[in-house]
């Protein structure tokens, strides 16, 4: 069904494309939001990705690979917006709100810890984590979506998870140290 729609859209059928876009927009927006961590920028990236997809569809050789191709486009759209954001000197303040004592053992603290760890990763590392752990792509599929060799995707995935683990461990050490200091003060 999807391949037929892709084939039609590739030949200029806007109705077919609107069906494809409707089925993909939430997924693409979620990916963009996770990569960019900003709602407005994610909206821009999603629109940009879908318009690019429409424009470039005639160049898609294998309709079976539409999804991976779409992921590649949204990742690129995010990268472009990310570059623009950096050129414009826009920086996002990393929140440093300490979770309350009661939260430390709860889900909120857990998510906060992951959030902080992710912020220490590069955009490329965050992106492959999202494609693998959120979208559910295999390393091979992620490599396809990122347009990198499989070895690069595997390596990037490995180092991304290691970097995240190290970042979380480092933060835990800092937190424990701060608690000890607080108790001895």
């Amino acid at each position: 069904m999807q391949t037929e729609l892709v084939d039609l859209a590739r030949r200029g059928d806007r109705e077919a494309f609107s069906v494809l876009a409707g089925g993909a927009v939430d997924r693409l927006y979620a990916i963009a939001r996770l990569i960019l961590r900003d709602a407005e920028l994610a909206e821009d990236a999603t629109q940009d990705a879908l318009v690019r997809a429409w424009r470039d569809l005639p160049t898609l050789r294998d309709v079976e690979r539409f999804d991976a191709w779409l992921y590649r486009i949204v990742v690129r759209a995010c990268a472009d917006i990310g570059r623009h954001r950096r050129r414009a000197g826009v920086e996002f303040t990393i929140l440093t709100v300490e979770p309350s004592e009661s939260d430390r053992t709860g889900e909120l603290a857990d998510r906060d810890q992951i959030e902080r760890g992710l912020r220490r990763l590069s955009e490329a590392q965050r992106t492959i984590l999202i494609l693998h752990y959120y979208v559910g792509l295999s390393p091979s599929e992620a490599a396809d979506a990122l347009d990198v060799p499989l070895g690069t995707a595997k390596s990037r995935l490995h180092y991304a998870i290691e970097a995240l683990r190290a970042a979380i461990a480092a933060e835990e050490r800092i937190s424990v140290g701060a608690l000890r200091e607080g108790r001895t003060a």
Binding site: S18, Y29, A30, A39, E43, T46, W54, R55, P58, Y134
Partner: peptide
């Protein structure tokens, strides 16, 4: 991850597509 994109994202996208020629 957000569950849904704002409705206007798709609406706006399709409006742009209507005036965009394919490569």
């Amino acid at each position: 991850a957000p569950r849904r994109a704002p409705d206007w994202v798709l609406t706006s996208t399709l409006a742009t597509v209507d005036t965009t020629r394919q490569r």
